[in-house]
């Protein structure tokens, strides 16, 4: 799976399931948690989604606001381990 596909799948998931507003124009570098678009519960949900959709297991210490606040950060973390 290429980076663009991963990015768009994640963007769609975040808008639909976590921000609950599919019309929201989510950009790559906006702070999703620090911007109040989703809370830290959503990090756990994101981890489940990433494992199901891409087969990538993000270990607990990487599930922090500092490391997972923007779409760019999330995509980079997934791509690192994507086969």
């Amino acid at each position: 799976m290429d980076e663009t596909t991963v990015r768009e799948k994640m963007r769609e998931f975040i808008k639909r399931e976590l921000i609950r507003d599919e019309s929201y124009d989510l950009t790559d570098d906006e702070g999703i948690i620090t911007g109040g678009l989703m809370d830290s519960f959503a990090l756990a949900e994101l981890a489940v989604f990433v494992e199901e959709a891409f087969g990538v297991y993000i270990p607990d210490p990487d599930l922090t606001v500092a490391k997972m606040d923007t779409l760019n950060q999330m995509v980079a973390r997934v791509m690192r381990d994507l086969q």
Partner: peptide
């Protein structure tokens, strides 16, 4: 609209302990 939604969500997140689920 996007600017206002962002501003609302940001204001609530930074001033309270909760996150708005729908705006």
């Amino acid at each position: 609209h996007k600017r206002i939604i962002q501003a609302i969500r940001q204001a609530v997140a930074s001033q309270t302990t909760v996150t708005l689920n729908y705006v």
